[in-house]
């Protein structure tokens, strides 16, 4: 069953909620139970900014099965303003025009459909800013 696995991540996928360590200020996305930097255990909930830049990217031509209808699609490591990094598709663009350093922002999109009758899975993707 995919529902519970999907549902558990909704705060991150829909609202980009992260955990800011009360000790050292390091922001973990997704949230963690222990800070990887200072081993602190107290966190404050924060929302990540929706703007960032591409650090590196690729264009997938041979996909995993759930993405077979979408190729070719661009996917990138994006550093959001403030330093947190995510892996995200970059859509609404000609992938051949992407560049390292390019500014992007996140939009709410459908990420996967679980078959023809299963749940629809949403989350963030990036578009050129």
């Amino acid at each position: 069953m995919f529902s519970s696995r999907y549902w558990r991540e909704i705060p991150q996928r829909y609202r980009m909620e992260a955990a800011k360590c009360s000790g050292c200020g390091h922001v973990s996305f997704p949230p963690r139970l222990i800070c990887p930097k200072c081993k602190g255990r107290k966190f404050e909930k924060v929302r990540l900014p929706d703007q960032g830049k591409i650090l590196t990217y690729t264009v997938i031509h041979v996909p995993a099965t759930p993405f077979k209808d979408e190729v070719p699609f661009a996917i990138a490591v994006v550093e959001l303003d403030g330093g947190v990094r995510i892996t995200s598709q970059v859509v609404d663009c000609d992938p051949s025009t992407l560049t390292i350093g390019q500014r992007v922002r996140t939009e709410f999109r459908k990420l996967q459909e679980i078959g023809d009758a299963g749940i629809l899975c949403y989350g963030y993707k990036c578009v050129p800013a």
């Binding site: 696995r5 991540e9 997704p30 650090l55 590196t56 990217y57 690729t58 997938i60 041979v62 996909p63 995993a64 759930p66 993405f67 979408e70 699609f73 996917i75 990138a76 490591v77 995510i86 892996t87 995200s88 598709q89 390292i100 990420l111 996967q112 899975c121 989350g123 993707k125």
Partner: peptide
Amino acid sequence: EYECYHGITFPGLYAMMARAYMH
């Protein structure tokens, strides 16, 4: 949940390393 969910593949991950290294 934070890489594959977005459609990344292993060739894709190494392709991003290649692109970063080329750059």
